[in-house]
Simulated scan of single mutants.
Amino acid sequence: MSISFHRLIPLIITLLLSACSLFPETRPVNVYMLPESTPVQTQSSSVDWSLRINTPYANQTLDSTRIAVIPDGNQINSYKSARWNDRVPVLLRERLIDTFRSDGRIKTITNDNGLINTDAELISELRAFQSEYIHGKPEVRVQLDTHLVQRNNQQVLASYRFEARQASKDASVASVVQAFGQATDQLSREVVAWAINVRKYNGDKHD
């Protein structure tokens, strides 16, 4: 017995709708920029040397656009449907550059994409850039191992581990992102003060 095409149409529509329901709905992704840094006010005189800031090395987990979170113990996850607008090491490199330039004492600041020959070089490794839950509340932690290197002879002038922590106002991603901005501001200012003092101690000019 043949079945008319018109009778098949409702069955076909039902099958198509059932097939579509098998695939999960894609959630929109919110892309976050690191909040703008607070301008640095300095009264100190400028120094006669230039600095290149390299992109920090980071492991596979941190070298991404994911916003990392440690909800409990040693398990690291990322916030769902939320991303940074660039890779984390690049975000931190640009924050360091902004802070050095805002400070104004070093007149020539460049990154590892530039061809300018500089007197010194900041090499670093990003060890932490995540939100961690402490007593049930999110707290941002940023940790950076740094090395200030004299470029003409590759001498390491000094090495130091910086760490900044900033509690988030609440558990929302937007509040956590604001805490990231405050923590990176604090860390960047400490790096600037350290680098200038190291060069001052070793002598601003090296032949």
Rank of each mutant, 00 (worst) to 15 (best):
V156A: 08
G203K: 02
N59M: 07
Q60K: 14
N202M: 12
V192R: 02
G104V: 08
I123A: 15
Q60D: 15
V29W: 02
T65L: 03
I13L: 07
I12F: 00
W49V: 10
A19N: 00
L8H: 00
G181T: 08
M33K: 10
T26S: 10
Q150T: 05
R127L: 15
L92N: 03
A19G: 00
Y32V: 05
G104I: 09
T65K: 12
D170C: 01
V156I: 15
L62W: 10
N117F: 13
D48G: 06
A183N: 09
L16M: 02
V90P: 00
A19E: 00
T26A: 11
T14W: 01
I123S: 15
I97Y: 01
L8R: 03
T55F: 02
S172C: 02
I97P: 00
Q186D: 15
S18D: 00
K200V: 08
L15M: 11
K200E: 14
L34M: 08
N74C: 02
T26K: 07
D72P: 00
N85R: 07
L96S: 06
I53Q: 07
D185N: 14
L122R: 10
A195M: 08
Y133S: 05
V40A: 08
T26G: 01
P10L: 03
P28D: 12
R189G: 11
Q43Y: 10
N152M: 09
K107R: 15
E139Q: 14
S102G: 11
I109M: 06
S172N: 05
Q186G: 07
N85E: 11
N202Q: 13
L16T: 01
N153C: 06
Q75E: 14
V140D: 01
L144S: 06
A158D: 15
L122M: 11
Y79H: 09
G114A: 15
N77I: 01
R165N: 12
D86I: 05
I3A: 04
Q155H: 04
V192D: 04
K80T: 05
R66S: 13
N113K: 14
L148V: 04
S102V: 09
S78N: 14
I196F: 06
T99M: 07
K205C: 10
D204E: 11
K205Y: 13
R165V: 12
S78L: 07
D119Q: 12
S172E: 05
T14Q: 01
A68Y: 04
Q178G: 11
L34I: 08
R161F: 09
R199L: 10
L91A: 02
E163L: 12
L148H: 03
I97A: 04
F5C: 07
V29G: 03
D145P: 00
L115S: 13
T108A: 12
D185R: 04
F5T: 12
E190W: 05
N85P: 04
S50M: 07
S131P: 05
H135T: 01
E190K: 11
Q75A: 13
R151Q: 14
V88Y: 04
T14Y: 01
I67E: 06
L8M: 06
N111T: 10
R161H: 06
W194H: 06
I116R: 13
L115V: 11
V192P: 02
Y160H: 14
V29A: 04
S46I: 10
F5K: 10
A171W: 01
Q130I: 09
S50L: 07
